[in-house]
Amino acid sequence: MSTTESASHYNNLEQLSVQELLVSINQEDKTVPLAVEKAIPQLEKLVEVTVEKLRQGGRLFYIGAGTSGRLGIVDASECPPTYGVPHGMVIGIIAGGDGAIRKAVEFAEDDEQQAWLDLQEHQITDKDVVVGIAASGRTPYVIGGLKTCRNTGISTGCIVCNPGSAVAAAAEYPVEVITGPEFVTGSTRMKAGTAQKLVLNMLTTATMVRLGKVKGNKMVDMQLSNHKLVDRGTRMLMEELQLPETEAAALLQKHGNVRAAIEAYEKK
């Protein structure tokens, strides 16, 4: 049995008080960053190949089912507003199609052929990199997609939460974060899902930094899509260029982007 499916360390959960439930869940959650830390050497290799592919004009794809698929879509959807990259640079694909984002599609994850068909809709090539996300490490949709990609010369990685899994075996750059039993037995949306989210954060953040999408520690290429982000951009310019708020706001409005505003001001 996989470790993510093994029995919880806690029992008779229905007899615990709310405080006992919350404290116990929190105790389990504290173990997740330590598990992620052990996987950093593996993740480093995946980041390096992802940076290389994206620098050459390639794209990063995520494939997954259920919670894992949804996490990939969340990470992909946040890259354009955060780093100003095109929407097609990081793409999340979930078994069962977009409808499965909100509602589970029965048996969608059991089709080994479908992930490759889904990837082909995006005209995938060997310039791209595909990362399979599967807590169990045994999702047929992910295994089949990674195998076909690898056989086609496409770089592959994965994020799994069990050791020695079929998904990891199918990936060229596996990232194995061993999170152990869940608080509720088998509920991998908990610790395993948290681990996957942490790894996804690390993967795309490190990649975007290496691609030059961050200046200092600021998201200078972010999309100014709401008042909060306009205010943030204004503060960035105030700090970076030592400008008063009114001048920084005017500069940002004129150039529509923090990086562009900084570059224009420094050329004066």
Rank of each mutant, 00 (worst) to 15 (best):
A76P: 14
G216M: 04
G96T: 10
E121G: 15
S187M: 12
I159S: 02
E176K: 08
S77C: 06
E112P: 10
M89R: 10
V175T: 08
K103Y: 12
Y83V: 15
I94Q: 11
A192R: 00
G180L: 04
K213Y: 10
Q123T: 04
H122Q: 12
T82D: 14
V160W: 01
L211E: 01
P163W: 07
G92F: 02
A195V: 06
M208G: 04
S155F: 00
I124Q: 02
T156S: 09
I159F: 14
S136K: 13
Y141D: 03
T194V: 10
F183W: 15
V167R: 10
Q113N: 15
E112M: 09
G193L: 11
T125A: 15
P181D: 04
L146P: 10
T205M: 01
A108N: 09
K127H: 05
A170M: 10
L200K: 09
Q123V: 01
G186N: 11
I91P: 01
E121M: 11
D75E: 15
K147E: 14
A134L: 04
P181R: 07
T139K: 03
A104T: 10
I159C: 00
G157L: 08
Q196W: 01
C158H: 00
V177E: 07
E121D: 15
G153P: 11
K191H: 08
L119V: 08
T82W: 11
N151Y: 14
G145C: 05
P174C: 11
V184L: 15
A169P: 01
L198W: 06
A192L: 00
G193D: 08
T139I: 05
A166R: 15
K103A: 14
I94V: 14
